[in-house]
Design a protein around this nucleic acid. Structure first.
Lengths: 258, 258
DNA sequence: CAGTGGTCTAGACCACATG
DNA sequence: ATGTGGTCTAGACCACTGG
């Protein structure tokens, strides 16, 4: 009986609930699904807060009166839907699912979230210059090998990462990119500083896929979790393509509206 | 040894491959993933055609030298990505994944596919009149309880279902719906017959989710497979809302382009 | 009826992260 | 060194489907 209070609030297993449960094997719904429903209810009701850690699988399985495999079936489903994350050797954690509304203009991402009252965060992974590879060149209508700028960021809402952004720009049109960007981490600022006040969306593509290991780590997901993939092109008033953006979004936390 | 030829080509286990395989447990990639890669390669290379049935899990697991659970881990991943379907009490089958391109105007679905050289199919599940519930009424700007027409269809490409469509129309504007629709199963025809030559897309929404049991059955998927959910509104030239369409698409088989 | 996939048990070893 | 999640084994019973 080590369920009761701990002195360190961040310790593992520091969670209410999970006591005196009975799951009947002969019911019409599988046990793993009953456990799924149960844990999901704990999350939705606020008993399990975002960031908190679940008890270890072995203890939890014992407490719920099922095998570890059966418990894992439930946890797996919850991970696929983005409610939980697991880190090998560490534990299973609760993720919140901000439901973000995104308007047509993908670059207005931050505004859409702020309108919902979310605290928007930006983590810049890298910002570098390099020659355009054939794909970048084709998307931006450049010659292969032309100088390009690559920017990769993770955007988060209320502390939960929800979006990986990878953007490519034609370096010739934006000589002062790094200087301006470093001030406020704003691409819009960079455009304005180079005289580009207005730009338009040429094309947006939305497809589906599954998180790679790297994407999963950045978004605090389990690899293989389903995601949205977006790809969009922006052009300035003269029709010059000035940005090719690709995004990777948690499937269950976004609505795209056009 | 019952692997060799059968007289009936549609029989279970009637599949080449799956012989003399060795999967090393101490490799850097898990066994289930090696099996996943192996089966996926068989599908991609055409050794496993769409619609063909895999050997039973027990036999297949034995042939691959792994436990049924390990095999099922690989099959599960393939099902989630839409490459396989399983029917309880029947077997596991190969699904092909037509990659359909869909343009902004969702009603042009069939045209997009035909342009790819696919054979487009339509299965009408129901077509009925009923009073609009609050949600329908709100989307179509009707009074609650106003007469509405509901149409539910499954669209397929090359015999594989890829899209469930549920549409709602204001019945008052389309008195001859059933008569016209029955001729060619075309909603566009119905609009034209009622003097609506042109209509415009008011809004499109794209979100993600997981297939319900009913959706899974209609799309020949496993319940819980990730899907796109679309919701769109069309209005006629005067701005009257004439159609509210909802769609459920296999995640891995569509690209939305705007 | 026989065969299928869906579920579940009771163990075990490993790689990994943390203290 | 300990505890974690990730993987794997060798069985078992069930509900469902088809002939």
């Amino acid at each position: 009986m080590n369920t009761s209070l701990r002195s360190q609030p961040a310790r593992s297993g520091d969670v209410s609930g999970f006591d005196g449960l009975v799951f009947r094997p002969r019911s019409d719904t599988p046990i793993w699904q009953q456990i799924y429903d149960y844990i999901l209810a704990l999350i939705d009701s606020g008993c399990l807060r975002a960031g908190s850690q679940l008890p270890g699988e072995i203890h939890l399985a014992e407490k719920l009166g099922v095998t570890r495999i059966t418990l894992r079936r439930a946890l797996q489903q919850l991970q696929q839907e983005g409610h939980l994350t697991s880190r090998k050797g560490v534990g299973v954690f609760v993720r919140s699912l901000p439901s973000a509304l995104v308007v047509r203009d993908g670059s207005r991402f931050a505004e859409s979230l702020r309108a919902d009252g979310k605290a928007v965060g930006t983590q810049t992974l890298f910002l570098e210059r390099e020659p355009a590879d054939p794909e970048m060149a084709a998307e931006l209508r450049l010659q292969a090998g032309a100088p390009a700028i690559r920017l990769r960021r993770v955007r988060s809402a209320d502390g939960q990462p929800i979006y990986i952004s990878t953007k490519v720009f034609p370096a010739d049109l934006l000589p002062d990119f790094e200087v301006v960007y470093s001030r406020r981490q704003s691409v819009t600022d960079v455009f304005v500083a180079h005289g580009i006040q207005k730009y338009r969306r040429v094309e947006t593509r939305i497809s589906g896929g599954f998180a790679t290991a790297e994407e999963a780590q950045l978004l605090q997901l389990t690899p293989g979790t389903p995601v949205f993939r977006t790809s969009s092109i922006n052009a300035d008033a003269s029709g010059n393509r000035i940005e090719w953006a690709r995004g990777c979004w948690l499937l269950t936390s976004v609505d795209f509206i056009f």
